[in-house]
Write a protein that binds this DNA or RNA. Structure first.
Lengths: 201, 201
DNA sequence: CGTTTAAGTGTACAGCTGTACGCTGGATTG
DNA sequence: CAATCCAGCGTACAGCTGTACACTTAAACG
């Protein structure tokens, strides 16, 4: 293993993945990306694609997994920022919106395949989002007197609001984004406050 | 006008629209629907399609508009129910979830094209959702002491939470849906309560 | 009535798709 | 060293796509 043969193979595999990510954009979704286009961009013959993936769906699932990694890095970054800065809500929203602005095409992949035609895709994206919700749930349970169930309900609401704000931001200009970010922060405050108040009844 | 000629034309046009709606499903999105498939289903020659629409995008925008009509009917129905039953949150969520269950393919169309590759589509869906938010804003301003701005922020949060719950429900079984509906209702209560509390500061 | 209009048809074509098949040439193995 | 393996290639094919073009035929018009 790990001879020059396997090494070259891995390199080509990465070239395919990069080619696919390069071609994703506002005007091109993964589902209308063709095997031949990806192969062309990667600099290999169409049939060589099969040496690495059984079909486009397998490549797509690999991409979703890679996006998951990127998202988890993002969350770690947010946690570090919070430890320094303190403001939980603002920091989280800032971090997420930064991600969306800097990786619009990765975010679009998740956004689109979440409701796409492939069950495997939908499940993969749902899993990534669930990770998100669960990590936030743990955080809430640790930092505030929520029960597991209450925390999950709250976390789900928070993730939904932030994720959606990111989606809407994709088609907005700077000014609209700023206003929308403010509204999102208010919505988060409301729901957190409401959940806390509910504890005391 | 309205001779037997125009009448037949209208009939064929409707056949095209129905054909497209018939073919939409969990496994088939509008974007991977071909002009030829639609024409076949509608019982006309492929080239006859052009007598009614310039291209598939024009047909798609027509569909989105029709969905908008269906959605507004839904809202009127919800309002009538609320007048009888009183419980605003439960009734709204029930009505919306009923819509999603009974028209999954119409809902999927909105859901998918909201983040699709056609700017015109995205804009059309965003417009429908905005209508939703604005009607709810007006209702909130009329029924509670919110300012226009506060009401819009709250309405946006509510619509986001409900719309997303509908999207997630598409891949759920009956039991999961029931649990999710309960969580959604809690989230709505939280955010409404939080917004009200914010008024009093 | 004859003339015009236009919805619907059938044919045709170029361009794209996924993928089956057999081959090559260099790395790996024994 | 010789034998084996296997990533990548090129060719080939059937099936799909949108749409240009010339046509029919029945309704609408003057």
């Amino acid at each position: 293993m790990s001879g020059s043969r396997a090494l070259q193979k891995e390199k080509t595999r990465q070239a395919i993945i990069d080619a696919a990510l390069t071609q994703l954009s506002a005007d091109q979704s993964f589902s209308n990306l063709s095997l031949r286009e990806v192969a062309r961009e990667a600099g290999i013959a169409p049939t060589s694609f099969y040496r690495h993936f059984n079909d486009m769906e397998e490549l797509g699932l690999t991409l979703v997994d890679e996006c998951g990694v990127t998202l988890r890095q993002l969350m770690r970054k947010a946690r570090r920022r919070i430890e320094r800065k303190g403001s939980v809500i603002n920091t989280s929203v800032d971090t997420f919106m930064e991600f969306v602005e800097q990786n619009p095409n990765i975010f679009r992949l998740l956004l689109r395949e979440r409701s796409g035609t492939s069950p495997a895709f939908r499940e993969a994206v749902a899993r990534e989002i669930k990770h998100f919700k669960e990590e936030l749930t743990d955080y809430l349970v640790a930092e505030a007197p929520y029960s597991q169930e209450q925390a999950y309900t709250l976390a789900e609401g928070l993730v939904t609001l932030v994720f959606n704000a990111g989606a809407d931001a994709l088609d907005m200009n700077r000014y609209e984004r700023k206003q929308q970010k403010e509204r999102t922060i208010l919505q988060l405050r409301y729901i957190i406050f409401g959940a806390l108040a509910n504890l005391k009844n």
